[in-house]
């Protein structure tokens, strides 16, 4: 059976169980609302534009945070990849920081910036930077020595060698790094928004929870999950696939 058919049957079963279970009142609507009420909450949210404002606000923060984290991450990664001393010192710190969940930075961010937009963006930046740096570093270190030798016999040295061979050769790692940075930044942003002020998807999630609107809570969670999946599957994985093919890294 095709994957698509299996999936359709699987999701249809879940949806049917969810809706029928709710209508038969197998569980209380406050604990878990019915599919139809979640759906109408979403429709309502888009009609009165609150969800649209939330989406715009969240994406704005993400765009700023992710862009900055990709730039900083790339620069740190290049430094770690090219300088052994930097790798042995700063590299260890980056590796340690990578294992700190980025939301842990929020208290510091609040002390530095206040409970506002800047604090959330700061947490988002930290979410993506380290994973980008580590991937960029691996990319630079894994450039085939053959490419470098070949380029040297063709007269390439120094900066020229870096910009024309070493960096382009590590593009597959840049793509993977960006994909992971996006995923980490997206999670960090949602966590940050949950604890901060609106508008934003995370903020609306907490707001709805405070007012006992489980239909909105579930609806927003579905939006957050759907965005994460769509960006990952339809944007990053496609780019990654075509890069891997072109760079001849298929196994």
């Amino acid at each position: 059976m095709q994957t698509a058919i299996k999936r359709i049957i699987f999701f249809a079963a879940i949806i049917a169980f969810w809706e029928i279970g709710s209508r038969l009142e197998l569980w209380h609507p406050l604990i878990f609302p019915s599919l139809s009420s979640v759906f109408s909450a979403l429709v309502e949210g888009f009609q009165d534009k609150t969800l649209i404002y939330d989406l715009i606000a969240s994406f704005k923060r993400l765009a700023v945070g992710l862009t900055i984290s990709l730039i900083i991450g790339t620069l740190i990664g290049i430094l770690l990849g090219k300088s052994k001393t930097a790798d042995e010192t700063l590299g260890a710190v980056i590796l340690a920081l990578q294992s700190v969940p980025s939301i842990v930075w929020l208290p510091i961010a609040i002390m530095w910036f206040g409970l506002n937009e800047k604090a959330v963006i700061f947490v988002t930046i930290l979410g993506g930077t380290f994973v980008m740096a580590l991937n960029m570093r691996t990319g630079i270190k894994n450039v085939s020595p053959l490419y470098i030798k070949a380029a040297q016999t063709m007269g390439a040295t120094g900066v020229d060698l870096f910009t024309r061979v070493i960096f382009p050769a590590s593009i597959p790692y840049v793509v993977t790094g960006s994909r992971l940075a996006w995923a980490f930044a997206w999670r960090a942003l949602m966590a940050g928004e949950l604890l901060s002020t609106g508008p934003g998807l995370g903020y609306t999630l907490r707001y709805a929870s405070d007012f006992g609107r489980m239909d909105i809570v579930i609806g927003v969670m579905i939006i957050i999950g759907a965005i994460g999946m769509i960006v990952d599957q339809f944007i990053f994985q496609r780019i990654e696939k075509s890069v891997i093919k072109k760079w001849g890294l298929e196994s």
């Binding site: 024309r164 382009p168 050769a169 072109k246 760079w247």
Partner: peptide, 27 residues
């Protein structure tokens, strides 16, 4: 290394991100 000596390796060592033309015009 210098451009007075062209080298061909056992593996072609072409740059995968460049077209055939861009590879040959590289040097």
């Amino acid at each position: 290394p210098g451009k007075d000596r062209g080298m061909v390796f056992q593996q072609a060592a072409l740059f995968p991100w460049l077209t055939v033309m861009e590879n040959v015009t590289f040097p």
